[in-house]
Design a protein around this nucleic acid. Structure first.
Lengths: 212, 212
DNA sequence: GTCTATAAGCTGATAGAC
DNA sequence: GTCTATCAGCTTATAGAC
C-alpha cells in the first residue's frame, strides 16, 4: 500500500496552481500578475508555488504550454472528402463551446498575442501557420471540387476565430451590454446558430440544420 | 505676443505622454505597465509624468477617456431611412480602417475588457448599452420595413465588432501566420471587402460594390 | 515647469525550521 | 514537502533644488 500513488498529491497541487495561474495571467498578463495572488487563489503559501515552479517565468510558460496542448486536442482531422458545410459548422460550434466553457484559456492566449506574442512567436510560426496552411489547402480543395464558391480560405479562418473567441475574450462587455450576469446554454446555442448560419450563408453554402 | 499660446507646450507634453502611456498600457495592462517605461517612451523624466498626471491610475483613466472620446466621434448617425447594405458596409469599412490604423487603442480597450472591465463597467452600461440598443432598433426597423431578412441585431453587431477589431488585437498572430512584417493598404482593402461581403451576404443582403 | 535624489512600500525569490 | 520569516531589488511617488 505504501507509495502506491506517489505522484498524486503532487499532481493535485500542480493542477491547482496551474488553474490559479491561468486565471491571474489571463487577467493581468505576465508582468501584471502577482505570485501572491496566484498563491492565494490556489490556497497555498507563496513559497509553495515557487517550490513547484521555481519562478514566475517558468510558471507562465507551463500555463501557456498547458493551454496549447489542450487546444491542439480539439483540432480534429478534416479532409477534402468531407462536406464543407458540415465540417465548418462542426468547427464553429466546437469553438463557440470552448469560448463559453473555457474562456480563461482564450483570454490568456489573447493577452499574450496583444502583448506581441513574446512567448508564442515560435509557436505561431511552427504550429499555427502550418495548421492554417493545411486547413486553407482543404478549403481550396473544396472550392476546386465545386463543393463551394470561391472565397479567401485564410480570411475565412480568421473570421471564424474572431467571431467565436470574441465571446470568451469580451465576455465582460457582452454581459454588460446584454444586461446579464452569466452565460447560459441557451445563449450558447443561439450564438452557435447565428455564427454558423451567417458565415456559411456568407460564403455561399447552405447552412446545416442540426438535429431537426 | 506674450502668453499668446499659453497652453501649447503643456498640451504637447500631455499628448506625448498619453500616446506613450496608451502603448504601454495596451501591451502590459494597468498593473503590468511601468511608469519608467512610459516616461522613457515619451522622452521625459519620470517625475515629469507624475507632475502632469499625479499617479498611475489617473494616467490610465486619462488614456481610457481619451480613447473613448475618439471612438465616439466615429459613431455616426444612421437612421431607418438609410439603405441597410450601404450603412452596414460603411460601418464595417470604418471599423476595419480604425483597426489597421489605430490598433493600439483597440488593444488597450481589449485589455481592459479581458481584465473584466474594472474601469469601464459604468461606460459599458451608460454609453455602450444604449448605443447598441439604438442600433439594434434601427436594424429591427429595417427588418420590419422589409428592407432586409430577419436576423438578431445584437449578435450581428457583436459579429461586426469581433471580425473588425480582430485585426487590431491579434495583429501579431495574423502577421505571424501570414508571414508578413506589417499591414498594408492592399490587405486592408481585401479584409474590408471580405468581411463586408461575407457578413452582408450572410444576413441575406446584396453586398455593395464600392467605386465600380 | 523641469529634473535629480530619495523615501516608502511592494514583489519575487529564498533560507531554513519543521 | 510545507510554511514562516526575511532579504534584495524594483516601482511608485514625492521632496526640493534649479
Amino acid at each position: 500500500m505504501k507509495k502506491a500513488e506517489p505522484a498524486r498529491p503532487r499532481d493535485k497541487h500542480l493542477v491547482t496552481i496551474l488553474m490559479a495561474a491561468e486565471e491571474e495571467f489571463a487577467r493581468h498578463g505576465l508582468k501584471g500578475a502577482r505570485m501572491q495572488a496566484i498563491a492565494d487563489r490556489a490556497g497555498l503559501p507563496k513559497a509553495n508555488v515557487h517550490y513547484y515552479f521555481r519562478n514566475k517565468n517558468r510558471l507562465y510558460l507551463a500555463v501557456l504550454n498547458n493551454i496549447m496542448t489542450t487546444w491542439n486536442d480539439f483540432f480534429r482531422g478534416v479532409t477534402v472528402e468531407d462536406d464543407p458545410a458540415v465540417a465548418l459548422d462542426t468547427f464553429i460550434r466546437q469553438k463557440v463551446r470552448l469560448s463559453f466553457q473555457q474562456p480563461t484559456a482564450s483570454r490568456l492566449f489573447a493577452n499574450e498575442i496583444i502583448q506581441g506574442a513574446p512567448y508564442l512567436s515560435e509557436y505561431l510560426r511552427e504550429v499555427m501557420r502550418p495548421w492554417v496552411d493545411e486547413r486553407a489547402r482543404i478549403i481550396t480543395g473544396w472550392i476546386d471540387a465545386g463543393k463551394m464558391p470561391a472565397t479567401d480560405p485564410v480570411l475565412l479562418i480568421f473570421m471564424i476565430w474572431a467571431t467565436t473567441q470574441h465571446y470568451a475574450d469580451f465576455q465582460a462587455q457582452i454581459l454588460g451590454i446584454m444586461d446579464r450576469d452569466t452565460y447560459d446554454e441557451q445563449l450558447m446555442e443561439e450564438v452557435s446558430e447565428f455564427v454558423s448560419a451567417t458565415i456559411l450563408t456568407g460564403i455561399g453554402l447552405t447552412p446545416v440544420r442540426p438535429d431537426r
